[in-house]
Amino acid sequence: MKKILILSDTHMPQKGRVLPDQIISVLKEGVDYIIHAGDWSEKSVYEELTLYAPVYGVKGNVEKDEWAEQLPEKEVLQAEHLNIAIVHGHLGKGRTTPDRAFQLCIDEEPDLIVFGHSHIPFMEKRDRIILFNPGSPTDKRRQKEFSYGLLTIDANEIQLQHHYFT
């Protein structure tokens, strides 16, 4: 069984000085991986997350420093039987963020596409591919609550959920 924390758009330290208690709680309970779909803002977010589990993530549209040059635009993670593609969602063709993420990742033959950028929690299945945006744990914009995602893979079953908090 694998448990994966899914984050995006942390925008730290501009939108939050520290990771919210809800995220720290999940990390302390234990996760196998952490996925971050971009807009970390600073390397310190990555460094803190690596204290808990291996981190897989991509560059968003706000990272501008030298560290950002090391981040990929797209990353693919194999977790158990799932092929997971990760992008931020600001690049590519398509009218909406989910459309752009889908178009950028379709060639990877993913089972799951994780993206961010809009700060809007989103989950939709297109053919056999699940598109998932966890929202943001620090910058909810016009959303009612902050959010993140949790993915649990157990044998051939997956559970993918948004978790909300105020």
Rank of each mutant, 00 (worst) to 15 (best):
N156I: 09
N133I: 08
D21P: 12
Q103Y: 13
D39S: 08
S41V: 13
E75P: 00
A68T: 09
T138S: 11
P110E: 14
T50D: 00
V26Q: 07
L49H: 02
K59C: 12
K15I: 03
P20K: 00
Q14L: 12
D21A: 08
I24Y: 03
E69W: 05
E42A: 05
Q70Y: 12
R142Y: 14
E108V: 01
S147P: 04
G60Q: 04
N61D: 14
M12Q: 11
G149N: 04
E69H: 05
W40H: 10
T97K: 02
V55L: 13
H163V: 13
A37R: 06
F132A: 06
V55K: 01
S41M: 14
T96E: 06
E124T: 02
K140C: 12
I120V: 14
V62I: 14
Q143C: 14
Q14I: 11
E48T: 12
V76Y: 08
E73D: 15
I34Y: 10
V31D: 02
L91K: 14
S8V: 08
W67I: 10
Q143I: 09
D127V: 02
L82D: 11
A37V: 09
V76D: 13
D99W: 10
I129N: 02
T152H: 11
N83R: 15
G135I: 11
P134A: 04
V58P: 00
D99H: 08
A85K: 02
W40M: 15
Y164Q: 09
G38K: 01
R100Y: 12
K2A: 08
I84G: 03
N133G: 13
K59T: 07
H81Y: 14
D111A: 03
C105G: 02
P54V: 10
E47I: 05
H81P: 00
K74N: 10
M1I: 06
A101I: 09
Q143R: 12
D139M: 09
P110A: 05
R141H: 11
P20F: 03
E63W: 00
L131R: 03
V62C: 12
L7N: 07
I158L: 15
A85I: 05
L160A: 13
P121D: 01
E48W: 01
